[in-house]
Design a protein around this nucleic acid. Structure first.
Length: 466
RNA sequence: GCUCCCUUCGUCUAGAGGCCUAGGACACGGCCCUCUCAAGGCCGGUACAUGGGUUCGAAUCCCAUAGGGAGCGCCA
């Protein structure tokens, strides 16, 4: 730690509360969090709720709950406060107004009276004539008198940023390396909506700067938007953070991760019973190569995070890999922790017995039925095993059970002598009769956990001719 | 259409001119262990998108091509 003393990096996660925590966002949040923790910096949570229509308090609360579940705690944010409060954009109006005024006074911004329909039409026209659909600059040259006239008619303008011409914007992306854009390819964009609320490009950039964020990490889809934000910040004389754009997260079919792929939000995985450690370990390796292959605890992750190994290519989310980390995480839990995770009032013996046969909570249900309930109808393979053993075998088994005091070792010894069977031929029919399944935990312990009545009944069931 | 990004095993990735007949992990197949599954051990197959350069030598550099993706929104 003391050998290489990294400069503390201040990162942030800036979700809009319009849905639950998307896995792709959870991953950039994780990377941002790890980067801050690795360098002893800060991790900030900012809620981008300028879209009043779609933003909801319940989404914000769930977002924060799911982040905490993942262990992505923040040093500054809406509920914990901090030097740059408030951390909800809906509450930062005054800050933005001042900036709008500054830009306007210095001719970096101008009111635009074009209607949404005008713009839609203009874009369509440009597209059909093979041109980039950019704002034509209609209102840029309006005189003061013309503006006054429109204001007089009660028109509500938006505010546009006047993009300077012939400017080359260069920056070094933390994951893509050097980037270079021409301002001539960028149209004047809206920074304040008709209703007076700030638009994303604006408040996002300005808040990152004002909150002291030094490293912005976000999805690849923002790469070409970055020059706008840099121009904006430069016009305002504000400090520019460094930007890094990670490849997107895609589903198993290569398309952007969505509900179609089963689960797309952290919350859904949580509800299905995945452990946060499993989700974390999986996300850690998606579009990122740490310096170890094995399972990492949340506490160990920052030390193994390598920002220089963040990926550019889209990463595919495969559930089979998540399953692996789920098993690994389970292996590292105590029986008591697993019991709490299953939340079903199981006995500790039961937990110890079935823990290696359970990956998701639902996997415990059949074993609970084996120990104290009714068996499901036999599958084809199970029926085959029962048929192959024959009723005499089970009659003998039922008898042996009475003489063995629920001890499998004693039971099989007797049975072995009487039937001449051994190995799988001996054990499998017993396993199937007793548990209804061809696979499962140690049979001897399973047998001890069931009531004598149950065991007796299950063995006798197959002692009759079919 | 314009601008930009991406492309190594099925998947996640290592690789920054010779250490690469391309390494690891997951998944898959086989064997061992074992009443079965899981775990564990051993073994195995499969990848540098294509085509041109540059070089004694290229997965690594350059140029094209192909295929994927993003942005160009009063969504973020």
């Amino acid at each position: 730690m003391s050998l290489n003393n990294p400069t503390p990096v201040i990162t942030r996660f800036a979700p809009s509360p319009t849905g639950s925590l998307h896995l792709g966002n959870a991953r950039t949040a994780l990377f941002s969090h790890l980067w801050a923790r690795k360098t002893g910096g800060k991790f900030i949570l900012r809620i981008e709720d300028t879209d009043a229509e779609r933003s909801q308090a319940r989404f914000r609360d769930q977002l924060m709950a799911d982040m905490r579940w993942l262990g992505l705690d923040w040093d500054e944010g809406p509920d914990v406060g901090g030097p740059s409060a408030p951390y909800s954009q809906a509450e930062r109006g005054e800050f933005y107004w001042g900036l709008f005024a500054q830009l306007t006074v210095r001719d970096f911004a101008y009111p635009c009276y074009c209607t949404a329909e005008d713009l839609e039409l203009s874009r369509k026209l440009q597209r059909t004539s093979g041109k980039p659909p950019r704002y034509a600059g209609t209102c840029r040259g309006l005189t003061t008198a013309q503006r006054a006239e429109r204001d007089g008619r009660g028109l509500k303008p938006t505010l546009r940023f006047a993009v300077p011409g012939d400017l080359t914007i260069e920056f070094t992306d933390a994951v893509h390396g050097p980037q270079r854009f021409s301002s001539n390819d960028i149209g004047d964009f809206i920074i304040r909506r008709e209703d007076g609320t700030p638009a994303f490009f604006f408040c996002n950039a300005v808040d990152d700067s004002a909150m002291g964020v030094t490293q912005v990490l976000r999805g690849d889809d923002h790469l070409t938007n970055t020059p706008r934000q840099i121009m904006l910040l430069e016009a305002l004389g504000m400090r520019c953070p460094a930007y890094g754009h990670v490849g997107l997260l895609v589903g198993e079919d290569g398309a952007p991760l969505s509900k179609r792929h089963g689960s797309a939000s952290a919350h859904e995985f949580r509800e299905r019973g995945f452990l946060s450690a499993a989700v974390l370990n999986h996300l850690f390796r998606l579009g990122h190569a740490g310096d170890v292959d094995g399972w990492l605890s949340a506490a160990d992750m920052p030390a193994h995070f390598r920002p220089e190994h963040l990926g550019r290519a889209p990463a595919r989310f495969e559930e089979s890999q998540l399953m692996h980390w789920q098993k690994e995480s389970l292996e590292r839990m105590s029986a008591a922790e697993i019991r709490a995770w299953l939340a079903a009032d199981d006995s500790m013996q039961f937990i110890e017995l079935v823990r290696h046969n359970v990956v998701l909570p639902a996997d415990a249900i059949p074993w609970r039925a084996v120990v104290q309930g009714e068996l499901a109808p036999l599958g084809t393979e199970e029926q085959r095993v029962v048929a192959a053993a024959g009723p005499e075998f089970f009659a003998a088994a039922a008898l042996a059970y009475e003489q063995s005091n629920a001890d499998l070792k004693a039971l099989t010894a007797i049975l072995k002598e009487r039937t001449g069977r051994k190995g799988a031929d001996l054990f499998m029919p017993l396993r199937v009769a007793l548990t209804g399944q061809v696979h499962g935990p140690e049979l001897a312990s399973l047998l001890k956990l069931m009531s004598p009545d149950t065991a007796r009944r299950r063995l006798q069931l197959h002692a009759q001719n079919p």
